[in-house]
């Protein structure tokens, strides 16, 4: 079996990955769809700061040694009974914003 991978448009967009330690959960439980994660700012030195709930994360932006491709399975056309599987490469990722350190709790003054 041969599964082709190619771009469909005339260019491959560049996307960004935000890498967080561990998994993300919603305090409300359930689906993450539409939920806000937090705010992302950059210091003038270019260091990213992510505020998630009551936590601050300090990270850094890194160039990937090897770029990643983002693949999407091609939509099967209903008219054709057996449509051969194929992937579109919709984007590449060359940089990621990595938050490796433990989140620092923010103490709010009440």
């Amino acid at each position: 079996m041969q599964i082709p991978i190619r771009m469909t448009g005339d260019r491959i967009d560049e996307w960004v990955i935000i890498e967080l330690q561990g998994a993300l959960e919603s305090s409300l439980g359930g689906d993450l769809s539409g939920k806000e994660i937090g705010t992302l700012s950059y210091t003038k030195e270019g260091a990213p700061v992510l505020i998630v709930g009551h936590h601050a994360l300090f990270g850094k932006e890194v160039a990937l040694d090897k770029p990643l491709g983002v693949l999407v399975k091609k939509q099967q056309q209903e008219s054709q009974e057996q449509c051969a599987p194929a992937f579109d490469i919709v984007a590449s990722v060359k940089r990621k914003i990595v938050f490796k350190s433990r989140p620092r709790p923010i103490v709010t003054q009440k």
Binding site: I5, I18, D31, L32, S33, G34, K35, E36, I37, G38, T39, L40, S41, Y42, T43, K44, V49, L50, K66, P67, L68, G69, V70, L71, V72, K73, F87, S92, V93
Partner: peptide, 24 residues
């Protein structure tokens, strides 16, 4: 800080499994 702060949210619907990553 730089001028822009971005609010990061999940798309709705969030279709994580529609995407696959491949190291090139």
């Amino acid at each position: 800080l730089h001028a822009e702060t971005q609010v990061v949210s999940f798309a709705a619907p969030l279709l994580s499994d529609d995407y696959r990553l491949i190291e090139l």
